[in-house]
Design a protein around this nucleic acid. Structure first.
Lengths: 152, 152
DNA sequence: GTTTCGTGGTTGCATTGTAAAACCAGTTTC
DNA sequence: GAAACTGGTTTTACAATGCAACCACGAAAC
C-alpha cells in the first residue's frame, strides 16, 4: 500500500494504529495471544493462515513492539511469542470488535463464543466510550480537534 | 484471502468483525464518516486512496450495512454515504484504536489530533473494559468460553 | 442550448501482497 | 542414530492494490 507511508506518520492516531494492526491477521494473532497461545505452531493451527504469512506477521508484530520473542516456557530450545504491555493495551480494541461482531454479525439462531469475566463467570458488559461523569459519548457529541497545520 | 471464507462464518465474533472491517481503509472511511464526511470526493481527498479502491470499499461497506446510500443533503442530484446504526456502533472500536495509537505510536515531541467531548470541551477519558461493578477487565482476568463444538 | 467544468465513478495495466505447497535446518523422541 | 516434530524460507500462482486514463452525468457558464 503506497498510502501506508502517509499513514505511518499521520497526525491521526487512528490512522497510525491501523497502519500497525490494520490487517485481519495481526489482530487475530493478538486475540489468540490473549487466549494463551504463544508458539508458532499454535497460531498456525488456530488461524489456518499460511506459514509464510504468519512468519511475516509475527516479525512485523515483534518489530512493532506488540509481541516479543522469548525462550519457550516449557524448557525446550524453541522460542515463543509473548505479548508486551503495548500488545496487552490492544485489549479494548479486540473487545470492541468482539462486541460489535456479537451484536451485528450473528443471526438469531447462531451461537458464538463468549468473553467471560473469570471473577463472576458471566459475560462481560458492553464497553462504551463515556465522559468522566458517565455520560455516553458518541460520534454525535464528540468531535476531532485537528492539529493547526495538519489533516484529520 | 482464502481464509476469509472461514472467517466470515467463524464462531468467534472477533474473526467475523475483522472479516467485515479488517482492512485499513474501511475503518478510516468510518472514522471520516464520524467526522461528518459523506461524499465520494470528501473521502477521496481526505484519505488519499485510489478512486477504484474507494469505490470498492464504499460498496462493500454498503453491502455490509455499515453505510447507506442516500440523496445528497445539499439538494444536488448527487448521492452521499451515511452511517447506519451498525456503522455508528463501530465507534468504540475506532475510539479504542485512537487511544491505543495516542499512547503507543507517538514520540514525546509529536502532536496528534484529539477526540473532544463537546459538552466539556476536553479530551475524552480512556475507555477500558470493565465489569458491572467497575473492576477493570484484562486478558488476565477474562477468558473465552468457546462453543462446545467449535474453535476459538 | 451548447460548450465547459465538477462529480462520481469504471477500465486497463503494472506492481505488490497473499496463498499453497515444497523444501530444509535444528530439536526432540525413540 | 533414525524418525518425527518445530519453525521457519523459498518458489510459484493468484488475488488485491495503486495509478492513470477514460467516461457518463449533472451543474454552471455564456
Amino acid at each position: 500500500m503506497a498510502a501506508r507511508e502517509q499513514l505511518k506518520h499521520a497526525p491521526c492516531p487512528v490512522a497510525r494504529a491501523l497502519d500497525a494492526v490494520g490487517d485481519a491477521w495481526s489482530l487475530l494473532i493478538v486475540r489468540d495471544a490473549y487466549d494463551g497461545k504463544r508458539r508458532f505452531g499454535e497460531f498456525l493451527d488456530s488461524l489456518g493462515i499460511a506459514r509464510n504469512i504468519l512468519s511475516g506477521r509475527l516479525r512485523k508484530l515483534v518489530e512493532a513492539g506488540i509481541l516479543e520473542e522469548a525462550a519457550a516456557s516449557d524448557g525446550s530450545a524453541y522460542g515463543e511469542y509473548r505479548l508486551t504491555r503495548k500488545g496487552m493495551d490492544l485489549f479494548p480494541v479486540v473487545v470492541g470488535l468482539r462486541q460489535w461482531g456479537e451484536k451485528h454479525l450473528y443471526g438469531r439462531q447462531e451461537r458464538h463464543s463468549l468473553l467471560i469475566d473469570e471473577a463472576s463467570g458471566k459475560p462481560i458488559p458492553r464497553m462504551r466510550p463515556a465522559a468522566a461523569d458517565g455520560r455516553p459519548l458518541t460520534p454525535a457529541n464528540t468531535r476531532v480537534r485537528k492539529l493547526p497545520d495538519g489533516r484529520a
